[in-house]
């Protein structure tokens, strides 16, 4: 079956190029160690808007425009816009699509959206269905808090294993031709439920999905984990990364120092008091499209496996006693 290899992996014959990216982060993320790798750091977490939802939409549009500008493209030259976010009915993505005027496919993969967008975009380009695809995702700490947890001014205490939703947006422009890192393979994950019920410990809920997709990728492609500069999970955080490492080593995959998590890179966990690390759609998006992309352009990296993870619950499902299912998609990026 042509481009599909093994159980879940697609090898791309003409690997699509990430020709440009755009990233915007909130003021808090701008105090983190990766601040210099983002195109814009907001000074106002509302970005001059009257609500957090409008602010999220505004930064998503900004990130898209930055990606287009960096490549010298106008929105009319883009065939498809693939985007998603965490807010109910993915309103940030669809309202941004209204503003950009590009034919739109809305995605929902919770925090795995960055990888989902890259994966579907790459398949569409390699399949000859499009020439240029813009993919983007966003999250906003306060918009997510009020939807998933408590009102933002509510005085509750956070758990040590809780993660901090990243305020930001990341966009990437994919093309069949051009300069930049290429997407050589994509592994779409299965939804897994390992019995997690605590919506505050999403790292633990997502770790088995990440491990499953990573194992699947290596079995399908026959590659060795050590031949990657970086195997980067999306937002497992400290607890999730530890659990994922355990799961992998039980299956005979012992990952070394090249195994990292975007959620552990974006904040200074000593100083910023974010507990187990960052999370949210924007977490893997801004780290990959900002920091990792720049390291690719500086030739510091040549082969990276991005494994963005998503927790697929809603406040309604967990209140009704359902477990938290999770997913992970892997994207092989190579210069």
């Amino acid at each position: 079956m042509g481009k599909k290899t093994g159980k879940q992996t697609y090898l791309l014959t003409n690997p699509p190029v990430i020709i440009s990216t755009g990233t915007v982060v909130g003021p808090f993320e701008g105090c983190g160690p990766l601040a210099e790798d983002f195109d814009e750091v907001l000074t106002d977490i509302r970005d001059g808007q009257s609500s957090f939802e409008k602010a999220e939409r505004s930064i998503l549009i900004k990130a898209c425009r930055l990606a287009l500008d960096h490549a010298g493209f106008s929105s009319t030259q883009v065939d498809l816009f693939l985007a998603g976010d965490l807010l109910n009915q993915i309103v940030s993505a669809s309202f941004s699509a209204l503003e950009l005027g590009i034919p739109f496919l809305g995605l929902y993969g919770a925090c795995s959206t960055a990888a989902l967008g890259l994966g579907i975009g790459a398949l569409l380009l390699d399949g000859g269905f499009a020439e240029t695809v813009l993919t983007a995702t966003s999250s906003h700490n306060l918009a997510a808090e009020r939807q998933y947890r408590y009102p933002t001014e509510y005085g509750g205490q956070r758990r040590a294993y809780q993660q901090w939703t990243v305020t930001g947006a990341g966009a990437a422009l994919l093309s069949t031709t051009g300069e930049g890192p290429r997407i050589t393979a994509v592994t779409f994950g299965k939804v897994l439920d390992l019995g997690s019920t605590d919506p505050l410990n999403m790292g633990a809920a997502m770790a088995p999905a990440a491990a499953d997709t990573i194992i699947c990728f290596f079995q399908d492609t026959g590659w060795d984990p050590n031949s990657f500069d970086l195997i980067l999970t999306g937002d497992l955080g400290q607890i999730g990364l530890e659990l994922c490492r355990q799961e992998l080593s039980e299956q005979g995959f012992n990952l070394g120092d090249n195994f990292m998590d975007c959620g552990l890179m974006i904040y200074d966990r000593e100083k910023q008091d974010v507990h187990a690390g960052g999370s949210g759609c924007a977490c893997s998006a801004v780290v990959t499209f900002g920091h990792i992309y720049r390291r690719f352009m500086k030739k510091e990296l040549s082969r990276v496996l991005l494994v963005a993870t998503g927790s697929l619950h809603s406040p309604t499902t967990y209140q009704q006693g359902e477990n938290i299912p999770a997913i992970a998609h892997a994207i092989w990026i190579e210069s």
Binding site: R159, A160, Y161, D193, L194, G195, S196, T197, N201, A204, P208, I239, E242, L243, Q246, Q319, Q320, G321, E322, N323
Partner: peptide
């Protein structure tokens, strides 16, 4: 909001989660 019954694999994983999860002070 009845909790679902866990399968053996789910129980095994949740036991690992409890070991890794930091306890509150």
């Amino acid at each position: 909001m009845a909790k679902k019954k866990l399968t053996p694999a789910q129980r095994k994983y949740q036991a690992k989660v409890r070991q890794v999860e930091p306890r509150p002070h």
